[in-house]
Design a protein around this nucleic acid. Structure first.
Length: 640
RNA sequence: GUCCACGUAGCUCAGUAGGUAGAGCACAUCCUUGGUAAGGAUGAGGUCACCGGUUCAAUCCCGGUCGUGGGCUCCA
């Protein structure tokens, strides 16, 4: 019997019923040099070995497809697990999924794996790949699978099975058998190049009360070249690490004497921060926000009203003073609400937009602290919008546009959007009424659609108090950073009784929208450091110009130039040491200073500066006035 | 908080199979006044993270504490 297969929506062919997906794809003999790894048939992921019955749409998956890569990595993780069990027969299997950049497998092992072990595991993997074992799918009933894993003494697999119903699938390659949904690449020989990257601890099911597991991370590619280029990218990321650059460029430090997770901003780091914050304030004032300031500590009662005292207690620093208890603020919202509530608002007053660079303190677990990215004290570029129901569409759209504008100015041109909504089944675990959630969600969608933005809908990812849009920024290495967030809050208005007086003279509930553009100033500057690799555009560079003398005789003239630049608000400094010009240039280059003004006898005579620009080398002579103009222009455009 | 690894000069890192340490850069002084990525000499700098234990002797071995890194968990 012949059946009809629609290939990838491109062409349609008739084939014998029961032909495998692999044979179908092979028979095509396409010019594309892309090897299929698995396929999607009528919307489900399948192995290429699956005989196709009945017609439908067949879509091959290659390493170029995200799903294809996931299959590839997942198969590699099986190979690794097989190698581990050959070398360490007592090791028990937990789980081994593909992740966004490779794969891992969690094992239960009495002894932790060493780097030496990883090398041996890699060697064993090589054998398995060379043997080109096929990945064989075996469908079993749950009972059969339980029997099988009982025999193999795989208690974690049994626990997983316990939660499954009906038929389950196992994958077998040679002696190795794993409980697995699949699909897999046809055989182990498909794996071209791989590397085990690190070993670390984890918990069974992420639960710290459960067994401690050993997790091995790895990655694989079809060719050695791709693997090498990936490893190079990892090296590159290491080179960009904001902690390394922060030290090299003398931007900030963390000192255990003052406390871990607390940032000491050195002059240059503080300068960058000041520029970011000044810019932030000016932009917010332009966009209809009012700047407010709220105290760093507040009485415990405020946090009881807000609910933080009950639900956020373990993250809060509490200060006890005589009979009064104070809390170091972990969030800015309650303060802003108190300002709003300090008077009665008419509908005519709305929307009210309060913005603050609000420094908050949260007792984060010591293990998560990470440079500027995870700290215990950080400054949120926070704002709360108080508005009526009719205003939410305009407000959300306004925030979205504003957030996009600001992130682009800082050089993040590629953004991704996520809409987090409620879990549809259990609506009762959320604050706020059904109607408000619907309105808010629609409003968020409308804004995204008005701006023609693609977004990913995240079912059940909303926090309990409201739906939100999260914006991710891609940096110059293509890595994602958490950027702006726009979030409805259906919890605090009720707790604090936040209202406005409507046309009818009665109080009405306000909508509160919590939003941040940069997230935290600390983290944002961390992302800027890595994005620019410390090589900041002129408007952000802590030092824009360094004036350097060729000989001691030129110090007076150099100082004059330096002062002139300073009087035009240019961030300049002078290197008048008794050193050769080559050394001074080398150091300025290493410090990534965008402009070097070299001062010799000729310049003094002609009243100019010899300008060297980073990345452009010697630009010849220029007058001070021209340099001032150039820097001011670059600072105003804020792009480079 | 937790698992594993690590902690030597301001920085980057050697080293000691247990006998109290070394380089480069940075810093200081002197020589050199040199035109677009490292001129030379001399010198100063360390309770080898901290606290205990074993030992005639510990920076090295053992235990604990603190910190750092990669994870887990959490999250801006």
């Amino acid at each position: 019997m012949k059946i009809k297969i629609d290939l990838n929506g491109i062409k349609s062919i008739d084939i014998e019923n029961g032909t495998t997906a692999l044979d179908i794809l092979n028979s095509l003999n396409t010019q594309e040099n892309k090897r299929p790894l698995a396929a999607i048939f009528n919307d489900s992921l399948i192995d290429l070995s699956l005989p196709i019955e009945n017609g439908g749409v067949l879509h091959p998956l290659t390493f170029g497809d995200e799903e294809g890569r996931m299959v590839y990595w997942h198969s590699t993780s099986h190979i690794m697990a097989q190698a581990v069990q050959r070398l360490f027969p007592d090791v028990k299997l937990a789980i081994g999924p593909a992740i966004s950049d490779g794969f891992y497998y969690d094992f239960f092992s009495e002894k932790p794996f060493s780097l030496e072990d990883l090398k041996n595991i890699e060697k064993e993997m090589k054998r398995i790949i060379k043997d080109d074992q096929s990945f064989e799918r075996i469908d079993k009933t749950k009972e059969e699978a339980v029997a099988q894993f009982t025999e193999r003494n795989e208690k974690f697999k049994l626990e997983l099975l316990d939660e499954l119903e009906g038929k389950v699938s196992l994958y077998k390659s040679s002696e190795f058998i794993d409980l697995c949904r699949g699909p897999h690449v046809p055989s182990t020989g498909y794996i071209g190049a791989y590397k085990l990257l690190s070993v670390s601890g984890s918990y069974w099911r992420g639960d710290e009360k459960r067994e401690n597991l050993q997790r091995i991370y790895g990655v694989s590619f079809e060719t050695k070249e791709e693997l090498e280029s990936y490893l190079k990218k990892l090296e590159e990321a290491k080179e960009r690490d904001h902690r390394k650059i922060g030290k090299e460029l003398d931007l900030f430090s963390i000192n255990e004497n003052s406390g871990v997770g607390l940032i000491l901003w050195h002059p240059k780091g503080a300068t960058i921060r000041r520029i970011v914050e000044d810019f932030w304030k000016v932009e917010h004032l332009k966009h209809g926000y009012e700047l407010v300031i709220t105290p760093h500590i507040a009485k415990a009662g405020l946090w009881r009203t807000s609910g933080h005292y009950d639900y956020y207690l373990e993250n809060m620093y509490i200060i006890k003073k005589e009979n009064e208890e104070y809390v170091l603020k972990p969030m800015n919202c309650p303060g802003h609400i108190l300002i709003y509530k300090s008077k009665i608002h008419s509908y005519r007053d709305l929307p009210v937009r309060y913005a603050e660079l609000g420094t908050v303190v949260r007792d984060e677990l010591s293990g998560v602290l990470h440079g500027l990215l995870r700290t215990r004290e950080f400054t949120i570029d926070d704002a709360h919008i108080f508005c009526t129901e009719e205003q939410i569409d305009d407000e959300i759209l306004g925030v979205l546009k504003f957030a996009r504008k600001i992130t682009k100015i800082f050089g993040f041109h590629k953004l991704a959007y996520e809409l987090s909504v409620r879990e549809p089944e259990c609506k009762d675990k959320y604050a706020g009424c059904d109607e408000d959630w619907k309105k808010a969600e629609l409003s968020l969608i409308k804004a995204l659609e008005t701006e023609n933005l693609e977004y990913k809908r995240m079912e059940g990812e909303a926090v309990f108090y409201g739906p939100k849009i999260d914006i991710q920024m891609y940096d110059s290495l293509g890595r994602k950073w958490q950027g702006p967030t726009i979030q409805f809050d259906f919890n605090l208005p009720g707790r604090f009784g936040v209202t406005y007086v409507g046309k009818d003279g009665n109080p009405h509930n306000v909508f509160i929208v919590h939003r941040t553009v940069l997230g935290s100033i600390e983290r944002f500057i961390g992302s800027l450091i890595e994005h620019y690799k410390g090589d900041f555009p002129v408007w952000l560079a802590p030092v824009q110009v360094r004036i350097m003398t060729i000989t001691d005789k030129l110090i007076d003239y150099a100082e004059h130039i330096n002062e002139t630049l300073k009087s035009h608000n240019i961030r300049t400094e002078i290197d008048k040491r008794n050193e050769k010009i080559n050394l001074k240039i080398r150091e300025a280059e290493k410090e990534k200073i965008p402009y070097m003004g070299i001062i010799g006898e000729r310049e003094e005579r002609e009243n100019t500066i010899s300008l060297r620009e980073r990345h452009r080398k010697d630009r010849g002579s220029i007058t001070t006035a021209d340099l001032v103009t150039e820097i001011q222009e670059k600072s105003n455009i804020k792009i480079q």
